[in-house]
């Protein structure tokens, strides 16, 4: 792992430790690639948000940057028509079932979705998809934070830190397809779960689904 390799991202020569994932190499060198589900500590990325697509020389289809280990002589382009199309569709689908109203959102100005929208010039209102408003009650049972499921983008960061960093096991994914959501055991309130209010999950939430009370 200590071997250094040289790669090219958007015509910039970058040296990075071999085997590190491309997404983190790019982000460390101030090259932005949209991402939601990635966590640096996670050995096996879930690659579920489908936002970190890049074009790699020698591979015909765009690849997800969070799963690609860097190797010597890698040539990467972060933008191309194919990449933009994929990212646009993924972003629009995420936005359709995400409750907007950024002014009232606790994550306003720190939201990853806002950042992606700004960086890639993507609009919140999709011409193709009708918004699908989730009608989930807000969980306000905890003292320190609230959980608003209608803002959740199902990135899975909170579930991962809950299981592997905090090692509590209070929240997880349940149901399937369009009904999929982050719940406690039995879909009870967080106050009735083993949650210890450590706040790890709130820190990693990329949007305003989990937010500290002010």
């Amino acid at each position: 792992m200590s071997d250094k390799v040289t790669i090219t991202i958007d015509d910039c020569k970058i040296t990075a430790p071999e085997g590190e994932k491309l997404l983190w190499v790019a982000l460390d060198n101030d090259i932005y690639i949209p991402n939601l589900c990635a966590l640096k500590e996670k050995d096996r990325p879930s690659a579920s948000c489908r936002l970190c697509f890049v074009e790699v020389k020698g591979i015909s289809d765009p690849v997800t940057a969070c799963t690609l280990p860097v190797t010597e002589g890698l040539v990467v382009k972060t933008r191309s028509p194919e990449v933009d199309r994929l990212v646009k569709t993924a972003f629009e689908l995420l936005i359709t079932d995400h409750r907007l109203g950024c002014k009232k959102c606790p994550a306003n100005n720190s939201c990853e979705l806002q950042k992606i929208s700004k960086e890639r010039g993507l609009k919140y209102k999709s011409k193709r998809f009708k918004p699908f408003e989730k009608d989930e009650p807000i969980d306000e049972s905890m003292e320190q934070f609230i959980f608003d499921r209608s803002r959740c983008v199902l990135c899975g960061r909170c579930v991962w830190v809950d299981h592997h960093v905090a090692e509590v096991g209070a929240i997880g994914f349940s149901l399937r397809g369009i009904k999929r959501k982050v719940t406690t055991f039995g879909d009870y309130d967080l106050a009735d779960s083993p949650c210890t209010e450590c706040g790890e999950c709130v820190k990693v939430c990329p949007v305003g689904a989990l937010s500290f009370n002010e």
Partner: peptide
Amino acid sequence: DIPAVDVFGLATF
């Protein structure tokens, strides 16, 4: 020895 919520997620899946 796994969190109950994981089994619950599987059962609802």
